[in-house]
Computed example of a mutant assay.
Amino acid sequence: MRGRLALPLLALLTALTVWSASQGQGTGARQPLPQTQRADPAPLPAAYRALLPLGAKVYSANCAVCHGAYGDGRGPLARNQAVPPRSFTDAAWMAEHGDGGFFVSVERGVPGSSMPPFAGRLTEREMWAAVAYIRTFAPGTPASAPRDLPGGTSREVQGKTLYAQQCAGCHGTDGRGNGPSAAFFKRPPRDLTNRAWMSSRTDAQLTAILRHGVAGSPMPAFGDALTATQLSDLVAYLRQLSRSAAQPVATSALYVQACAACHGMQGNGQGPNAPQLSPRPRDFTDWRWQGGISDAELTQVLRQGRPGTAMPPFRALLSDAEIRAMVAQVRAFGQARVPRPTSPIGGSP
């Protein structure tokens, strides 16, 4: 994307792009489709459909010169760029990338490419309109469900191996306290998929249990057997166990469209874009976080974004009613607020 809405040269280049595309280069050339005729088996959410007329104007004046009139990355300036402009017709790529990330790319630019920042040049509404229009180049992707990251983070993968070696005999391979040794205990080993119990313990508390064991129970101390890094990896995997045991939460079309690529289909912060982001996307299944943020604070974050992160502002895209629905969606991933424990952290292993 380059330029401003009213630059005569850019308007001329865009007009030439559309004209040359309409003339065709052989019998296989596509003819431009009016917006109302675009195939769309999975309709855009209402918030996006309302922005399409504006989005067409913004895209034509600012984006087509590089990304092409058809969004295929073949605009008149594309050949002069070391990094080719993105093709928005790549349905597989589009389905794995959320519109929140697109907005941030438009707002801040893309380092290492010719994509400039448009903050201060386009309004938030115009940037969201461009994002909405870009989606029409890959019909059907708005309702695609991005795949959450397989296997978890590298820490969780390492922790899974340690868990199988050190813990599964008592707590079971799925963490439910049903390992082969469980029958020999007066009380069953701790069910590590109990999200209320897991969420009420901090990582430091879980690490202390692993390092020192639990007095009066069969839970051994691993302080001499595992390094600090291994203990940290094991705690990360224990967190994954409790998340994995949660019942899937239904996700709205708007959440899938704007949030799932970063926050994951189940709100666990494990969307396909997550590894590229620093800080990582919020894990909405973390009950400790859920209990520490109010609906008013959630609403403010959704409306204004969060500086220093990839979280974009949605105030120019979503109505107050839609933002309330998104708050409810985030709450559904946590399912309940769990109070901090007042009893000791000991008990069965």
Rank of each mutant, 00 (worst) to 15 (best):
G3M: 06
P8W: 15
L9N: 09
L13W: 10
L13R: 12
W19P: 02
S20R: 15
G24N: 10
Q25Y: 10
A29M: 03
Q31G: 03
Q31L: 10
P34V: 02
D40A: 13
A42F: 01
P43Y: 07
L44I: 04
A47W: 07
Y48H: 08
R49H: 01
R49Y: 00
A56V: 02
V65C: 06
A82S: 10
P85S: 02
F88G: 00
D90T: 02
A91Y: 00
W93N: 11
W93P: 00
A95R: 11
G98A: 13
D99I: 00
F103N: 01
G112L: 01
S113L: 03
G120N: 10
L122M: 07
E124F: 00
M127G: 10
A129R: 00
A132K: 08
T136A: 06
A138T: 09
G140W: 12
G140E: 09
P142G: 03
P142W: 13
A143M: 05
S144I: 03
P150C: 07
G151P: 06
G152Q: 03
G152R: 04
E156M: 10
E156Q: 15
E156L: 03
L162W: 13
Y163G: 07
C170D: 12
R176S: 14
G177I: 07
S181I: 11
A183K: 12
F185M: 14
R187M: 11
P189R: 06
P189L: 08
D191R: 07
N194Y: 04
D203W: 05
A208C: 03
A208W: 07
I209P: 01
L210I: 15
L210D: 06
R211A: 13
H212C: 01
V214M: 12
F222I: 07
F222C: 04
D224F: 09
D224C: 04
A225F: 14
T227L: 10
D233R: 02
L238H: 05
R239Y: 04
R239W: 03
Q240S: 15
S244V: 02
P248A: 12
P248N: 12
Q257H: 12
A260R: 00
A261E: 01
G264V: 08
M265E: 15
Q266E: 15
Q266N: 14
G267H: 09
Q270R: 12
Q270F: 11
P272Y: 01
N273C: 06
Q276D: 08
L277R: 07
P281W: 05
D283L: 08
F284H: 15
D286L: 03
W289D: 09
Q290R: 14
D295G: 12
E297Y: 09
Q300V: 08
P307W: 12
T309P: 00
P313M: 05
L318R: 01
L318H: 03
D320R: 03
V327R: 04
A328H: 03
R331C: 01
A332R: 14
G334S: 07
A336I: 04
T342E: 11
P344K: 10
P344F: 13
I345W: 03
